[in-house]
Amino acid sequence: MEFEGRSAVVAGGAGGLGGATVRRLAAGGVGVVVLDPQGDRADALVAELGGRARVVVGDSNDDDAVAAAVSAAQDLGVFSIAVSATGVVIPSPRLVDGDGAPMPKDVLLANLELHVLGPFNLARLCAAAFAANTPDADGQRGVIVQTASISAFDAQSTMVPYAAAKGAVASMILPMARDLAPFGVRVCAIAPGAIATPRLSTPRIQQALMGDIVFPKRLGKADEYAMLAEAIIRNPYLNAEVIRLDGAARLSAEFGGRPAPRA
């Protein structure tokens, strides 16, 4: 899909992955709406980018916030791109702790709300808006980029709720692409490994995460996620794929031989 005259909504657009994606899309001429609950950070990013960006304070689970973001994007161009870059690892214990107590069920519910319901809600509402677009030469009306995780495939101990949620994201991509094919809407997901964002700021955590990375032997960069998002959007033959972005990492059972530490 060509960028000229297009607009996008990036959920989580004030964060590390989302912010890099917002910058890359804006640099390519896309009008971008930053949908994020962190209004101050979103305002600072939009001020940096100038007139081709807008802020909507809210999250993807809020129908009104998504509707406002879609409306703002339609004012910036032909609204054709939705990127869900929301989410953090919500700390969780083992399924049963050393004293035999089960993990609270609320930990799973919190992960599902953040990592599954939000991206699903953004996709359904944005796809409905895309359906009214005039198709391009390939019949495209829109593109949705979701964010899974390598934890969907080889998560470590203490990661059951997060892995379940990210696994759900990975599993929804093919049927979502099939559902939306009649409308000319493509759907892909990026499954990042350890990406250097402010949430992975401590040297101890960064060093431990590098243990499972093969090459390049470093953490990923947020702009490398954004580069892949751009490639997905631009390439009309990419559809229904979940693409790992991880330096060939395959996670070991334990984080450095012990349960994963939390930032």
Rank of each mutant, 00 (worst) to 15 (best):
A8V: 00
G13S: 04
V22H: 10
R24H: 08
R24M: 05
A26Q: 14
A26T: 14
V30Q: 10
L35W: 01
D40P: 15
A42S: 08
D43P: 07
L45G: 08
G51R: 15
V56H: 13
D64W: 06
A73E: 12
V83G: 09
V83H: 12
I90Y: 01
P91V: 02
P93L: 01
G100M: 10
V107R: 12
L108A: 11
A110Q: 15
E113R: 10
E113I: 03
V116Q: 13
L117V: 11
F120S: 06
L122Y: 01
L125H: 14
A128H: 13
A129F: 11
D138W: 02
R141H: 10
S151D: 14
T158K: 13
M159F: 05
V169E: 14
A170T: 15
A170H: 14
S171L: 06
L174F: 05
M176T: 14
R178V: 11
G184L: 08
G184M: 04
R186Q: 04
R186C: 02
R186D: 05
V187A: 08
I190H: 04
P192Y: 01
G193H: 00
A194R: 04
A194P: 02
I195M: 05
R199C: 07
Q206A: 14
A208L: 12
M210L: 07
K217R: 04
L219A: 03
L219M: 11
A229I: 00
A229F: 02
E230Y: 05
I233R: 03
A240K: 03
G247F: 00
F255Y: 14
A260S: 06
A260R: 12
A263T: 10
